[in-house]
Computed example of a mutant assay.
Amino acid sequence: MLTPPEQFGIVEPGLYRSETLHPTHFPFIRSLNLKTAILLTPELPSRAMSNFFEENQIRLIDLALGSWKNNNNNNNSNSSSNANANTTDAAQGIGEVGGSGTGGSGGGNTGNNTTVTTPSVPVALFQTSWWKPLSEELIKEGLEMVLDANNYPIIVMDTSGIHEIGTFMGCLRRLQHWNFSSIIVEYRAYAGSKARYVNEQFIELFDVDWITLPESQPTWWIEKEQMWHEEEEERELQLQQEREEQAQWKKDQLAITTVESSS
């Protein structure tokens, strides 16, 4: 029996979305004949999933892991330069966010906290620099992979199948010229009560002009882009016709006014 992941979905022909895979999902995923898998969360894939992709010759791309490592290294540097400026309250605030105390009253011992993933920076900096669910660079790189026909069939995953991937697919829909309301409806259909306003805001503000389209594009993209351009041309012709009719109406009204004035 084939068991799909709970958050599995077909985004476009040959393009799928899912949460992290477990062995019970492997027979179903094998039936998709995937060529590429993209992971959006900064976590090492399980040994079982890595072995599955390797055995089935599926290219696994862990986009977020490299991005997270770079951000973590940068924040460690920032932590060293700002350590003397942190107040006790700020240190306590960061400890609560990260789930591991990095400071506090009484000079508590932090020597055992060796795996803190939250940067030791002031709370204000945390709030302004870490609000984004994903980086623009990761979205750009991932979307350009998704729009490259050489990578198909392809699946995009994150841990829950909701947050990072929902943001990612929302940006793809923006690129497809979807109405923003329709994008949010799709996002919330997967997220349900776990929907996050910050993800929706990221989707709305993402600059789609930053994406460079690859030379080889999937058929679904080519067809929908052609359809969109045809609809845009039809809309422009309709607007032009309405402008001409309005101009003619004004001309007729002026002529009638002139005749009435003469009589």
Rank of each mutant, 00 (worst) to 15 (best):
F52C: 05
H22A: 08
P119M: 04
P214K: 04
K132C: 12
T258N: 15
P133K: 09
A149S: 13
L138S: 10
S120F: 14
I38T: 03
F206C: 06
D207H: 05
N70I: 06
V156E: 01
Q7D: 07
Y190S: 09
P23T: 04
Q7P: 00
Q248H: 03
D148A: 03
H229F: 09
E54C: 05
G111N: 10
V11M: 02
K251P: 07
G9N: 05
V116R: 12
M1G: 12
I10W: 01
I222Y: 11
G192D: 04
G108Q: 07
L60D: 06
Q238Y: 04
Y197L: 14
L21V: 03
G106V: 03
F126D: 14
S120G: 04
I256E: 15
E55M: 08
K224Y: 14
H163A: 06
L138V: 13
E6P: 00
N82Y: 07
N179V: 11
T258A: 15
F202M: 14
T118C: 15
G9W: 03
S79W: 08
L205R: 14
G107L: 09
S31P: 03
E136P: 06
Q248S: 05
N71H: 13
S67G: 05
N72G: 02
P133M: 11
S120Y: 12
F126T: 09
Q240K: 07
P27Q: 05
Q201M: 13
E43L: 10
W228K: 09
A124I: 09
K250L: 15
G98M: 00
S193I: 08
G98S: 00
D207V: 06
L138K: 05
N72P: 01
P214T: 06
Q57I: 07
K35W: 12
F52V: 02
S50M: 12
K194P: 04
G192F: 03
I203A: 12
L213H: 01
K194F: 13
I10Q: 05
E233P: 01
Y197M: 12
G161A: 01
T41C: 11
E204D: 10
S18C: 03
T87D: 13
Y187W: 06
E223Y: 13
L60F: 09
V121D: 08
L40Y: 03
E137G: 09
K224R: 15
P122W: 08
M1K: 08
E225H: 14
V185K: 14
E19I: 00
R59P: 01
E6Q: 10
S100P: 00
M49A: 11
E236P: 03
L65A: 10
G98I: 00
L213S: 02
N112H: 13
S105R: 01
